[in-house]
Design a protein around this nucleic acid. Structure first.
Lengths: 134, 134
DNA sequence: TATAAATTTAGACTAATTCTAATATTGTTT
DNA sequence: AAACAATATTAGAATTAGTCTAAATTTATA
């Protein structure tokens, strides 16, 4: 079992119960959850939990580089535990989002046309295996 | 001067004044505008214009492949005139979005791991030339 | 011109997010 | 441990993007 308190301390974030549980949830649910999904999952454990706390916490975690927000076209924030760079594939039929590895030809830390690339988000769209064969 | 009526007819969209003006605006403003920006720009020309019309029109244009919506992390829709595939670079300091060409190694129409790729959106983030040298 | 079909409109409604000010918790100093 | 300051959490109001709806307008067709 991971020591989330330690992970938070290493980023100089004081480890409240709310922050620990939110981080734990994101680590165990690599499904790009929304604030609402996080709230619904944690409210049984922390009955006083407020959505505002989740918004605050996600903003803080993003600033400290623990998580990142996933660009999308839905007007609802999606968040992901920050791991080694990978891309997302969204099926335009079933709407599921899959993690996928693509050899991008973009290296973090280098420059392209004088733009210094610190991170990237590649969103691929099309049909997934199941929907293609139906 | 482009014939937007013709462009619309070719996609079998009946060309109302609103639709022509919205298409013209998107063609002349490749800055990924929001509904609000489109509305504010067009209201002097079309004083009765309703935002609902812009939402309807953008949805229709997207379905017909004239434009596409740009994934982002702001929870506001951004739209772009559909052109040859290119990527976007967002400066994390000045927040500007630049168009940028990257050799991706992803070809539209082919499969990656059995996922059929119909389109992609690559969002790069980091520091632009100006902000880097300050 | 009459009629039908499609488009646009204003305004009510919903849902995600932000703001705010009060309360609770945590950490520090004595 | 008590007192204090700093930080975090909370509920609820406010804001904003986007959707829904039904009426009014425009366009196309007979």
């Amino acid at each position: 079992m991971k020591d989330y308190t330690k992970i938070l301390r290493e980023k100089s974030i004081s480890p409240s119960i709310q922050r620990i549980k939110i981080l734990e949830f994101l680590d165990n649910n690599r499904t790009h959850p929304t604030v609402d999904e996080i709230f619904t999952s944690l409210i049984p454990e922390i009955p006083t939990l407020s959505k505002m706390t989740i918004y605050n916490t996600l903003k803080l975690f993003s600033a400290k580089g623990l998580i990142k927000s996933i660009p999308n076209s839905e007007n609802v924030g999606h968040y992901d535990f920050k791991v080694s760079p990978h891309s997302h594939f969204k099926c335009r039929k079933c709407k599921k989002v899959y993690d996928i590895d693509v050899d991008l030809g973009v290296t973090i830390g280098t420059d392209i046309d004088d733009y210094q690339i610190d991170e990237y988000n590649l969103i691929l769209e099309g049909l997934c295996k199941e929907c293609k064969n139906k």
